[in-house]
């Protein structure tokens, strides 16, 4: 039977794994969970752990949605985590369904056999050739990407997002004021569901494990729009005219690390005055 104890054990295993010396082969373990169940918030939270530690995320869509858990770290970590998930669900129906691009069985932990997904390095090789967002450009954009920082031009009053050190309207670059656009209650302008085969290659592991995903164009403030993937909602459930909140989430691994960005999630509580 699934228990708080097993879930806490998972956290402990992850913490132990985080203390392992670097250099272990990395693995990604993907499991589709039947429900959110009783995993505690420290497991389901989406805060990235410090470098070298295990990072993971867990869907927050509620009991009726197929939720997914992805773990990335070195091999012992992945095996330990997968074993704990397996044990937590053993004897329950439906249990976790192991998904992804499985390699051969690589080991057992705590007496439970688990499969291990292909190595993180393997998936990196597929996406790092040719055109992509190099790390310095990803880092340069983080204020706009993570905090929706825009720039207001003192000369003409125009707000430019994403911030590029230059006013979109008058071209001015002097004295631009940093402005944070709202992160929540964004209006959905357009929405599409990307089916298998419609995704850029770097999203292949995600599609293999989670299936289709939705992408929306959302208006954060008047005239300020951003393209966001949708999380924690069934693909297609967010529609034009809906309001969404945003959360910092994983995008995909590249250059040996996870890229993070905001994703749109269903509005957590209706804003006053809105229907």
């Amino acid at each position: 039977m699934r228990s708080e104890g097993a879930a806490k054990g998972l956290v402990a295993a992850l913490d132990r794994a985080a203390a392992l010396p670097p250099g272990n082969p990395s693995v990604v373990v993907l499991a589709e969970m039947p429900s959110r169940g009783s995993l505690p918030s420290e497991v389901t939270g989406n805060d990235p752990r410090p470098d070298g530690a295990v990072a993971f995320w867990f869907g927050e869509g509620g009991g009726t949605l197929p939720l997914s858990l992805a773990l990335a770290g070195d091999a012992p970590t992945g095996l330990a985590a997968a074993a704990l998930i397996h044990r937590a669900h053993s004897g329950r129906s439906p249990g976790p369904r192991w998904v992804g691009d499985w390699g051969p069985l690589q080991g057992t932990t705590a007496g439970t056999s688990v499969s291990v997904a292909r190595t993180l390095e393997g998936s990196l090789a597929a996406v790092s050739e040719g055109a992509y967002v190099p790390r310095p450009r990803y880092v340069e954009n983080l204020p706009s990407r993570w905090r929706f920082m825009a720039e207001e031009c003192p000369a003409c009053g125009t707000t430019t997002f994403p911030a590029r050190g230059r006013c979109r309207r008058c071209g001015g670059s002097e004295g631009l004021l940093s402005r944070r656009l709202p992160r929540d209650d964004a209006l959905v302008i357009a929405a599409t569901v990307i089916g298998p085969g419609g995704q850029p290659t770097e999203f292949d592991p995600q599609v293999a494990s989670l299936g289709p995903y939705e992408v929306v164009l959302a208006e954060l403030a008047r005239g300020q729009r951003v393209t966001l993937q949708v999380a924690d909602a069934a693909p297609g459930s967010i529609r034009i005219g809906d309001r969404v909140d945003t959360l910092l989430r994983r995008l995909y691994p590249q250059e040996g690390e996870w890229r993070y960005g905001r994703k749109a999630v269903p509005r957590r509580s209706p804003a006053p005055g809105r229907t």
Binding site: Y132, V133, R137, Y138, N141, R145, P162, A190, A191, T192, V193, I194, G198, Q199, P200, F203, Q206, Y213, V215, V216, L217, V226, T227, L228, Q229, L251, R259, G261
Partner: peptide, 16 residues
Amino acid sequence: EWERLAGLTFAGVYGL
């Protein structure tokens, strides 16, 4: 930097 990072190729952009 924005469209591809959100998971779009041209099919996705035209889908929007």
